[in-house]
Amino acid sequence: MKAIITVVGKDQVGIMYRVSGILNEKHVNIEDVTQTILQDYFTMIMVVQIDETAASFHEVDEALHEMAAKQGLSIHVQKEEIFDTMHQI
């Protein structure tokens, strides 16, 4: 299942490392990444493929949120469909 992960937070060492570490652990394949610093805020968007035989959407979501809470980051994991539906006719 395709999902979009959005990470926003104060720029700090190791954000990318922590996020991709969890994704690796859950067998989630990263298909595309974009990141930028907007007014001191690290903003990263990832397009990923979740292999639900390895870990469910819910498990990936939970693991990322747990890490984000510790690091003071805001993270969203959403199915891709929401963006297509909202922004395309």
């Binding site: 959005t6 926003v8 968007i45 397009v47 805001s74 969203h76 963006f83 297509d84 922004h87």
Partner: peptide
């Protein structure tokens, strides 16, 4: 990818 603009817009709508 144009999707990134849409993603940020959606996140802003939800968060702010």
């Amino acid at each position: 990818m144009t999707i990134y603009k849409d993603v940020l817009e959606t996140i802003r709508m939800i968060e702010k």
